[in-house]
Design a protein around this nucleic acid. Structure first.
Lengths: 227, 227
DNA sequence: CGGCATCCGGGAAGATACTG
DNA sequence: CAGTATCTTCCCGGATGCCG
């Protein structure tokens, strides 16, 4: 007897013509924007999404995926054989929210109660690099760094004052780091030294470590607000 | 016997170093960002905030104001005599969220289910003008429009491809409109003609109506996504 | 009237267990 | 692995009432 599904009452909305209010109708529910964040660097499977969002339970993830799909922000797609696996992928419009996600992150980094030492997902680490990159500090330096986070690999390149971060084969880069995302954050934002983390075995470097240390100079956390 | 306040359990947080997640810790609760929106053009009183946010109940507004104050995004201030009235005012850091609020609005305006004919507050109307202004369309035109929304007055100026919108004395402008915010939106975004709304008495113009009609050419809604 | 506390009903979020 | 079903907890929204 589970045919009480007829109700399907409309989701709660701000009845407001303001675009900001409508944005919150679309992505204002808890976890929704973080689900989009996890998809910003490419499609993901249900389980990988859940793994990147500790604290999010499966039923809520299902609801958010349904809502975001209904809004036209993502699509459920089946990868071609031999993978034949179901993934969730942002639409073009969904991807257009990336600068907003980045701007939110940069803005909130000024919060006195922001704790940058908490764990974070590999995708948010990569997006953080894109957001906090300072082109002036980089000048015309040209370099590439590969990151291995367990089975996930990313390549970050800096050239002509532009930083790009994408999924790719880490081994293609000048230097390759094998680390946890939070350790990369600690090094890039100056909380821990590379040598320190290499000594404890938490970070493994293939290639010239000096290239990565140069790379970390391109980033700086913004000053805290108020205080 | 109301000393059961000891609980005070910590607010629910995403335990995530990602700046975006922390932004949602700060302003991710329902209504929080819209409360900030209402304060973007200057301090407001409790009752005026509530009036600008239909559907928001007083107890929830109290909670949001407490949360935003604890986060350092706004301060509760008492106006000097003879007003001697309590108002809520964004901090500098809080005001820095304005481009994010604007970007969210512009992004969400592309939603197929966005209904720009719903009512909206005077503040969101003014912010909408700032966000959707197209400098290329304006060229080097120079003009000023005054808006009267009941007791609230705003002045919008366009000069050298820059639009500013602030509280001020509407009568100082070249043209003054007395209207509801949603009627201004209808004209600016091309759903209704000025003459039409003047004929029905919903909009009153002091000064040259042609100046306002020129003004409306500087705005256009973005194309809908997907479809 | 403005600001805040209290109580209540409904619904969303969170945790766990279960199924194909 | 990819969800669904169920239960509990908590938040949201509305109403009421107190107090300055």
């Amino acid at each position: 007897m589970k045919l009480e599904k007829i109700t399907k009452q409309a989701p709660r909305r701000y009845e407001d013509a303001c675009g900001t209010a409508h944005a919150l109708d679309l992505v204002g529910e808890r976890w929704a924007l973080l689900v989009m964040r996890e998809l910003m660097l490419g499609p993901k499977r249900f389980g990988d999404l859940k793994a990147g969002l500790p604290g999010l339970s499966a039923n809520v993830l299902t609801q958010r995926l349904e809502g975001l799909e209904a809004a036209g922000l993502l699509v459920k797609r089946r990868l071609p054989p031999p993978a034949s696996v179901q993934v969730y992928e942002l639409t073009d419009w969904g991807r257009e929210a990336e600068p907003i996600v980045g701007a939110l992150g940069k803005w909130a980094a000024r919060s006195p109660m922001h704790d940058p030492t908490l764990p974070l997902s590999s995708v948010s680490m990569m997006l953080s690099l894109k957001t906090m990159f300072d082109a002036d500090k980089a000048g015309d330096v040209c370099l590439s760094i590969g990151f291995r986070f367990g089975p996930e690999e990313f390549v970050v390149t800096v050239a002509d004052g532009v930083l790009t971060a994408e999924r790719g084969v880490a081994g293609m880069a000048q230097v390759v780091l094998t680390a946890r995302p939070s350790d990369v954050a600690a090094m890039v934002y100056g909380f821990r030294a590379l040598d320190d983390l290499r000594a404890s075995g938490e970070v493994v470097v293939e290639g010239d470590p000096a290239v990565f240390e140069r790379f970390t100079d391109f980033f700086e956390l913004p000053p805290k607000a108020g205080v």
